[in-house]
């Protein structure tokens, strides 16, 4: 009960957001907002979960997209398997969903146990090495993953509980609910004692240890949860593209997630989400008006970084005086 009162406001906001998102799906006939939002859900979860590592806990990971890719591939492969589909029938999607998250959780526990002992730059490089290792495995294990062509031939989406994920409205609604649940989960973790411990570790690891926080354990749990949330992002992308691609596990994908975070701002809870939208819009709008997309995107990023020296959301909030320096 006390938990509920503590997070009453957040839960209400979440409920409200779900309703708004669903209304958009129902009343906007044009397919663009749905397509746009689904890709935001997916990459937004990647960015938000990465910020749980970077922003909450101060663990700069260069290899977070590995878990996004793993979730996507696991989900896609399960639903492409005939025997899996016959065994679970109408429940296939739900089972595949949780199994994929679970697999990612196990994998990230192993990787995390090795990585979180290291500090800063070494942690960053080790996560990068593991991500690129996974990428090599995906690309060379052609018989299972389709190699560089990715999972081809579409992914089965059997109807469950009246939900048909090959229908774009159903798919959109399903993804928005999952997305908001994940964001709410991150929010609750952020505000809970767990989030408090993470911030203590981030600001001063020795002090945190002195205060009796079991640093290794807390960091590892944070790493696993962030990875599992990222895998949900991958699952949404797999549902959307009806395939999975090795580029998801490439280091540039992790890099892109970092830009999203930095564009929005790491100290604001929803900053990374705003960054996701911004990066997507920059990309799309620049493509519309210029054939020199790299040049223009580069200049915009340079201006944000060197001009504002912080995420856009942080900058605006400070300007308007909502957030104090």
């Amino acid at each position: 009960m006390s938990g509920f009162t503590l997070f009453k406001k957040d839960i209400s906001i979440a409920l409200f957001s779900v309703i708004i998102l669903i209304l958009i799906g129902f009343f906007v006939e044009h397919p663009w907002p749905k397509d746009f939002l689904i890709s935001i859900f997916s990459f937004g979860l990647l960015a938000m979960s990465l910020n749980m590592l970077i922003g909450f806990a101060g663990m700069v990971s260069f290899g977070h997209a590995a878990f996004f890719a793993l979730g996507g591939y696991a989900f896609g492969l399960l639903l492409q398997s005939e025997s899996f589909l016959t065994n679970f029938g109408a429940l296939s999607i739900i089972v595949a969903f949780f199994v994929s998250i679970f697999i990612t959780g196990i994998y990230s526990a192993v990787i995390g146990a090795i990585c979180v002992r290291l500090n800063e730059i070494y942690f960053a490089f080790l996560t990068l090495a593991f991500q690129m290792f996974l990428y090599s495995v995906i690309v060379s294990w052609v018989s299972l993953t389709g190699g560089d062509q990715g999972l081809m031939g579409g992914i089965a989406r059997p109807v469950f509980l009246g939900i048909d994920l090959s229908n774009s409205l159903h798919r959109y609604t399903f993804c928005s609910v999952i997305f908001v649940i994940c964001i709410l989960l991150l929010r609750i973790l952020n505000k809970s004692n767990f989030g408090y411990s993470l911030r203590l570790i981030r600001d001063n690891q020795e002090r945190a240890e002195f205060l009796g926080i079991r640093v290794f354990r807390v960091k590892l749990i944070c790493f696993i949860i962030a990875s599992m949330v990222a895998s949900v992002g991958g699952i949404i992308m797999t549902l959307f593209t009806s395939g999975a691609y090795p580029e998801w596990a490439f280091w540039t994908q992790s890099g892109e997630a970092i830009f999203m975070i930095m564009l929005g701002g790491i100290s604001i809870f929803l900053g990374p989400l705003v960054g996701t939208v911004l990066l997507r819009l920059i990309n799309d709008v620049v493509q519309m008006y210029s054939s020199h997309t790299e040049l223009v995107t580069g200049i915009i990023i340079m201006i944000v970084v060197l001009g504002l020296r912080k995420g856009l959301v942080e900058y605006l909030l400070e300007k308007t005086g909502i957030l104090k320096k």
Binding site: H292, T297, G298, V305
Partner: peptide
């Protein structure tokens, strides 16, 4: 301009620089 700052700021400056230079080489 980003010495001593977060490693992520350096990463971002470098990334933007790579994009700009690649396009300049193309031009």
């Amino acid at each position: 301009k980003v010495y001593g700052q977060d490693i992520l700021m350096q990463l971002l400056v470098c990334y933007a620089f790579i994009l700009i230079t690649d396009d300049l080489v193309k031009l």
